[in-house]
Design a protein around this nucleic acid. Structure first.
Length: 440
RNA sequence: UCCUCAGUAGCUCAAUGGUAGAGCAUUCGGCUGUUAACCGAAGGGUUGCAGGUUCGAGUCCUGCCUGAGGAGCCA
């Protein structure tokens, strides 16, 4: 090797293409197994984990001692030759020739997350470090794939991305779940609960749009399905009726599941997800009306009455009978938001739809047709006790070329929790915000 | 907000009202193919906080704090 030649730095995911070559891997010490005069440092670099081998007889004394005494999560750059090795966890192994220690984690203050088990409180307190573990890595990569797939779906189906504001002067869901922001002098401003109202305005300009961003709900809820800050994608389509909304929702879910199966098999395996439960997610999804759902629930022993919304156990009871998402439509108008279009043949029910994920994961999508008639919208705003002034721009949309339209919102975290088969949505976002959790 | 449960070593957990213990982690020693390596030894404690009952409280009682699970509501 000439003095000008440099050793290439590779990623561990790419190791298979460098067998027999001398390479550099820049990363962190994941774990170290010792066996006398041979040690096996496991190095992770963000793309994967690689088992390395250091043999005492093959290295300078000082270097071998340094490797042997490395501490967990010390930052290191290892140099060596890649070799295919069946005994190594990833199928490849690196014979260490040199190790450059960027920072050795001090023994008196060791890395807190050991390879053994930990409780959820401890892990959540160390979320900033927990992200380094294999499991969290796999989950967040699935999340990334879900988001990419969602964007690709809409981008390739004629939708324009319109980012909607996070500070808003008005509510779109219940007014009790608003986060107030004390900054603006003139008026009360809140963190958005949904980009929908603005997406409706954009749909009247662009036809088909979607927004994707964080949303905030000050619900005093503490369950495995709730975050106070969560991400939602919301398509909105001019001239779309309820049936079209359902068709797009179904197509989107099938596409997203397909993409995760196509590109994130390894991560699903790491999570020990039963992929057969995802492979059967194909159109058409079963469809049922709210009326039939209530009858079915009552037959199964639920004490739900017509007119009230489903509880979590009701959703589970309904969805467990199916191996694919269940679409429930025509809910009682009274339990739904003010903008829901009533069914012209039965005004007591709204042209809205919920999509319930299988395996008890509950509602992942909610949407429907919006009210396009000016007088009806004004009446509903009044009935719900909402401030008309704050909605003046929204009302304008019904004055200037109003058309039937609709859309839906899909919660990213619930989707990811379902696809990964997780117990709780808190692991589906890097830094979850919950009722009693705002750190780290 | 309501209901239920929990809080003991850095972590995960034991301990009839009667001497606070184990595994992992850490340190030291051993081991040339380990797979959450293994074997031996050592150090490590204001039992969440404040009161109370008792000869004696990690254990029983009261209040508070923190967390978890669930309900309602929602994506």
């Amino acid at each position: 090797m000439s003095s000008g030649e440099t050793v290439p730095t590779i990623t561990i995911a790419d190791a298979g293409r460098h067998v027999g070559m001398k390479v550099r891997i820049a990363g962190w010490l994941y774990n170290l197994r010792k066996s006398g005069k041979i040690v096996f440092p496991l190095v992770r670099d963000g793309s994967g984990i690689m088992q390395c081998v250091a043999v005492k007889s093959a290295l300078p004394e000082e270097l071998f001692e340094q490797i042997k005494d490395l501490t967990q999560e010390s930052s290191i750059i290892v140099t060596g030759k890649v070799r295919a090795e069946q005994r190594a966890p990833g199928g490849y192994e690196l014979d260490i020739e040199n190790v450059e220690v960027i920072q050795r984690v001090p023994v008196e203050d060791p890395y807190p997350i050991t390879p053994k088990e930990h409780g959820i409180e401890f892990l959540m307190d160390h979320r900033h470090l927990w992200l380094r573990s294999r499991r969290q890595h796999a989950i967040l990569r699935v999340r990334h794939e879900v988001i990419r797939a969602v964007r690709d779906y809409f981008d390739s189906h004629g939708f324009t991305l319109i980012d909607t504001p996070i500070f808003t002067p008005s509510a779109c869901e219940g007014t009790t779940t608003l986060f107030e922001v004390n900054y603006f002098d003139d008026e009360k401003v809140y963190l958005t609960q949904s980009g929908q109202l603005y997406a409706e305005a954009a749909a009247m300009a662009f036809g088909k749009v979607y927004c994707f961003g964080p949303t905030f709900r000050a619900e005093r809820s503490k369950t495995r399905r709730h975050l106070t800050e969560f991400w939602m994608v919301e398509p909105e389509m001019a001239y779309a009726d309820l049936e079209e909304v359902k068709r797009v929702a179904e197509e989107l879910v099938v596409y997203v599941v397909g993409r995760v199966l196509e590109n994130r098999r390894k991560e699903l395996n790491e999570l020990e997800r039963d992929v057969s439960k995802l492979e059967c997610i194909q159109a058409p999804f079963p469809r049922i009306t709210y009326d039939d759902a209530v009858r079915e629930l009552q037959a199964k022993g639920s004490n739900i009455q017509w007119g009230s919304d489903f509880g979590g156990t009701d959703e589970t009871l309904l969805s467990e009978a199916h191996d694919r998402p269940l679409m429930v439509d025509r809910f009682p108008s009274a339990v739904k938001a003010f903008y829901m279009q009533p069914d012209p043949e039965r005004p007591e029910v709204a042209l809205g739809v919920d999509v319930l994920a299988p395996e008890g994961y509950g509602e992942i999508i909610g949407g429907g047709q919006r009210i396009h008639d000016l007088d009806l919208l004004l009446r509903r705003i009044e009935e719900h006790g909402l401030p008309k002034e704050a909605f003046s721009w929204y009302i304008d949309l019904r004055k200037y070329g109003t058309v039937p339209h609709g859309g839906f919102g899909m919660g990213i975290e619930r989707c990811v929790a379902w696809l990964c088969g997780l117990e709780h949505v808190r692991e589906t976002i890097a830094f979850p915000r919950m009722l009693y959790r705002t750190r780290p």
